[in-house]
């Protein structure tokens, strides 16, 4: 989408990185942008529409600035997916200063139904930005290692 056209919110997208992949979320607040970027993270692995939001996992992170907190949020999701063998498709984020409290809803990975393509190893600080645009909307982005 051209940069000068207003983007319907909330929204997410992937951005190009030759070896890995970029995730970006857009929303009316940093929290909403974080939630959308989490959807972009799931979409690297499989189609989020195939993941039923049946059970919830609580996420709690803390970091000194919004950008580090964003990477922490994505890495917390990567960790929970890995150790619980879950995929997530719905997210809620509340930001309180340097603290993030969130929930992720999803279901156990089903290799037949979800057809997972690739595993995410971790979120990186490359192309990391959490910004408010002139129109007041927020974006959160970074490259993730796959």
């Amino acid at each position: 989408m051209p940069a000068d056209q207003p983007r319907p919110l909330p929204a997410w997208e992937h951005f190009e990185h030759r070896a890995d992949m970029g995730v970006a979320g857009f929303g009316a607040s940093p929290a909403e942008a974080f939630e959308q970027a989490a959807l972009a993270l799931t979409a690297i692995i499989c189609d989020p529409a195939r993941v039923r939001p049946e059970l919830a996992v609580a996420i709690d992170c803390e970091a000194p600035d919004l950008e580090l907190l964003f990477v922490d949020w994505l890495n917390a999701l990567v960790y929970e997916m890995a150790v619980r063998h879950l995929l997530f498709s719905r997210f809620r984020v509340r930001l309180e200063g340097s603290r993030l409290r969130g929930e992720a809803w999803g279901e156990p990975l089903d290799r037949v139904r979800h057809e997972p393509a690739v595993e995410v190893k971790g979120a990186t600080y490359t192309a990391l930005a959490v910004r408010q645009a002139d129109d007041g909307t927020w974006s959160a982005r970074c490259v993730v290692d796959v």
Binding site: L68, V71, V78, K121, G122, T124, Y125, T126, D145
Partner: peptide, 28 residues
């Protein structure tokens, strides 16, 4: 993967205390 995640953050947070200016945080 988790060792990378854990230590990247610790190295980013400690960089200024070690007197290191990072041109890119990923160089933690």
């Amino acid at each position: 993967h988790q060792i990378g995640t854990d230590y990247l953050k610790r190295m980013v947070l400690a960089a200024s205390q070690h007197g290191i200016r990072l041109p890119d945080r990923e160089l933690a």
